[in-house]
Design a protein around this nucleic acid. Structure first.
Length: 731
DNA sequence: GTAGGGTTAG
């Protein structure tokens, strides 16, 4: 510990002064450093000897290390002969403050940059995900015959992560050929990159090949995180135990990594126990651990209450911690507005949002009225350093397409500075959700041509595009391609897509067979897909099986009860329908009330079925009455099978027709048509799936009114135009 | 004077 007495410093000789400054740097003691700096001006500044040059350069290093950029810059500007050390320090300081353009300017001024200068800049580009620049610098380093080291390679590998596994494989080769595979840091970077590209097997291989002696703590932590992120939580926990048994040092990074394992297992109880243990050791106040905890509770506890408690315990929240909170809010659909509040609050307390903050807040906008997304988009443009980040653009593409605005999604996709796997995934998914399977598959083929590696998520979108349009053969082809050509082991989601694809196409037997033979225990999603297919094709027997399996897994979901009782009712099996309704009441299962909303002039108007609360409801009813006449003239026949919700026998056909007319999506559409100018497209969002009668009616409404009407339901988009729907009635 | 491990988009 550095102990000082200002008065005695006046007598220091230059060498002692230098040693003191060194100590300040290694201890990051800003206070003592500043005092030394003041003294330096009084006594040494005028000399022009080596030690003065040394000292003045080291003040830049001191301030850079202590994170005070302004002081670092002042010290740097006051240094008459800046050496490469202080250049490197100040470049690093700017890079860490996301001011890469200034870092680059300074780099270009260095008379003779050394390897550390290059490494620093490469890391800065890696931080930004700019793989081209990082590779360019690597080339320069090699041309200059500077001997590459582990810093160079781990930086380059980090920068190239996210550009497909092919590039990582090439770099891995380069690492092995150059003999850099003895560097733990380089192997760690390779390991993490493989994992992030979706290749856990390769990551594990790297880890094993490192051997116990070749690993450091980072290797263990990286492997634990990799397993956690690939939902192999129990492997992650086993690694942690192994680490503890071996007496390796366990730090906050390890704790955070273990938390990702609990999160992946959705093991809230285990995570909470671990939390309790960490409270005893005080780890829970650490930001790394905190973000792990917040992630755990936001994903597993069904709300943000616990997260807020964790957040409040943290002594000095950092940017990642704030981002994790924003992310938590944005993943809880009904808390999207809170995500925005959190984003604003973070800025109020002085944090500058980074790409991750924007990605999270933009994704929250997918669940909010479109105008909010537009505003946040404007914000990303204003904060220009982020504008060019691929990740933010990807999030914007996803947001616009989820908000039903495929045109703007495409515009961003076409103008963004570069594409990676996620960019293509977002756009492909956008087209898939809108039922534009041809565009979706065309983009996928383009992706392959351009050598942008698909990942497991790409195939989810591709398969769902096939499912949404009934392309059974294509779906089968892509499912096989994913295994055989790309070596991806299909995950539960891929199997669900196949169940959906086959089931909807009427191949119920094949769909059921997939459930029986897939290498996972089928979850509610798989059974729901089969149930939906049974409903479409009227197979009550199989529906009973699917529904009961669903209920076993998710006892409080109303979905299986409602679907099955509607099926009974449709088949005229009233008693069974009633029994099911009774059972539902007895078990306390509540149906989610259907509601639809529309944004007009930045105000959201929500409608529930047979709504009478809206101030303009009379006008809406009047409009619907008129519309009904026109609809009937155009050949609309109300499909009263969709009005079977309660007391079926008691209601007359006329009453059923009236009920249908006042479904929430029809009310919202009518309101939209009343409130907007001729020709303006309208967007309605529904919290459940669109009803079949509404689907039919809105098709005709779109023709009568000459409007483009988009309805987003929980499953996909229906874009009605000139009497047709983009789903081509396949839903 | 410089890396690799916690959060994110599909």
């Amino acid at each position: 510990m550095l102990v000082f007495n200002y008065h005695s410093w006046q007598l220091l000789n230059p060498h002692t002064f230098r040693n003191l400054l060194k100590a300040c740097i290694s201890e990051r003691n800003l206070l003592a450093g500043k005092a030394l700096h003041a003294l330096f001006f009084k006594s040494h500044n005028n000399n022009n000897d080596n030690i003065t040059t040394y000292l003045s350069n080291h003040f830049t290093i001191l301030y850079s290390k202590c994170g005070t950029l302004r002081n670092a810059r002042t010290a740097f500007d006051l240094t008459e002969h800046p050496n490469v050390f202080s250049y490197n320090a100040i470049i690093n300081a700017y890079a860490k403050h996301s001011l890469l353009h200034i870092a680059r300017q300074l780099f270009d001024q260095i008379p003779q940059p050394d390897l550390v200068s290059y490494n620093t800049l490469i890391s800065a580009y890696a931080e930004r995900g700019d793989c081209e620049q990082a590779l360019g610098l690597l080339r320069v380093v090699r041309e200059k015959c500077l001997a590459i080291d582990g810093f160079t390679l781990s930086g380059v590998i980090d920068a190239c992560c996210g550009r497909g596994v092919g590039l990582i494989r090439q770099l891995h080769c380069f690492v092995v050929m150059g003999g850099f595979d003895s560097y733990a840091s380089v192997n760690n970077a390779i390991l993490t990159s493989y994992s992030k590209e979706g290749f856990l097997g390769e990551a594990k291989r790297v880890f094993h090949e490192m051997g116990v002696g070749g690993r450091d703590e980072v290797s263990w932590n990286s492997m634990i995180v990799a397993c956690g992120q690939h939902r192999e939580g129990s492997d992650a926990l086993a690694l942690f135990c192994e680490m503890v048994m071996m007496g390796l040092e366990v730090d906050m990074f390890t704790m955070a990594s273990v938390l990702t394992a609990f999160t992946s297992l959705k093991d809230l109880a285990g995570g909470m126990q671990f939390h309790a243990k960490m409270i005893k050791s005080g780890f829970h106040r650490n930001t790394h651990v905190g973000s792990g905890l917040i992630d755990l509770y936001s994903k597993c506890a069904g709300g943000m209450l616990e997260c807020r408690k964790v957040f409040e315990e943290i002594t000095a929240p950092d940017l990642v911690l704030w981002n994790t909170m924003i992310s938590g809010y944005s993943q809880n659909e009904d808390l999207s507005e809170d995500a925005l509040c959190c984003f604003r609050k973070m800025q109020r307390v002085g944090f500058r949002p980074d790409d991750c903050s924007f990605v999270c807040v933009v994704s929250a906008c997918s669940n909010l009225p479109p105008s909010v997304g537009n505003q946040v988009h404007a914000l990303t443009i204003k904060s220009d350093i982020l504008y060019n980040r691929v990740s933010v653009n990807n999030a914007l593409v996803a947001m616009y397409s989820k908000c039903g605005n495929l045109q703007d999604a495409r515009k961003i996709f076409d103008t963004m500075p570069g594409h990676n796997t996620v960019s293509l995934n977002s756009m492909i998914a956008g087209y898939a959700q809108h039922g534009l399977e041809a565009e979706s598959l065309w983009l996928f083929e383009l992706m392959l041509q351009k050598d942008i590696a698909p990942n497991n998520i790409t195939f989810i979108s591709v398969l769902s595009a096939c499912a949404h349009t009934g392309k059974v053969e294509e779906g089968q082809k892509y499912f096989n391609m994913m295994k055989e050509k790309f070596g991806f082991e299909p995950e539960a989601e891929h199997y669900s897509c196949m169940i959906d694809l086959l089931g909807r196409a009427g191949k119920l037997k094949e769909a059921e067979r997939i459930i029986e033979t897939m290498p996972f225990n089928p979850g509610s999603i798989e059974w729901a897909a089969l149930l939906g297919a049974c409903k479409k094709h009227g197979n009550v027997d199989l529906a009973v099986k699917a529904a009961s399996e669903f209920v076993r897994i998710e006892p409080y979901s109303a979905v299986p009860y409602v679907v099955l009782s509607n099926m009974y009712a449709s088949a005229g099996r009233w008693e069974e329908a009633a029994t099911l309704k009774k059972l539902m009441r007895e078990r306390g299962v509540k149906k989610t009330p259907g509601c639809s909303w529309i944004e007009i002039d930045k105000k959201v108007h929500v409608f529930v079925a047979e709504d009478t609360s809206h101030p303009m409801i009379n006008k809406i009813h009047e409009y619907m009455g008129e519309m009904l006449k026109k609809l009937k003239q155009a050949g609309y026949v109300p499909d009263i099978r969709w009005a079977l919700m309660k007391d079926e026998e008691a209601v007359t056909a006329e009453e059923k027709e009236r009920k249908l007319l006042y479904h929430s999506e029809k009310l919202a559409v009518a309101f939209g048509l009343i409130c907007t100018e001729e020709g303006v497209p309208i967007l309605v969002v529904k919290n459940l799936r669109i009803c079949g009668d509404c689907h039919n009616a809105i098709k005709i409404i779109s023709a009568i009114s000459g409007r483009e009407i988009t309805v987003r339901d929980t499953h996909r988009f229906h874009c009605f135009k000139e009497g047709q729907c983009s789903c081509r009635d396949y839903w």
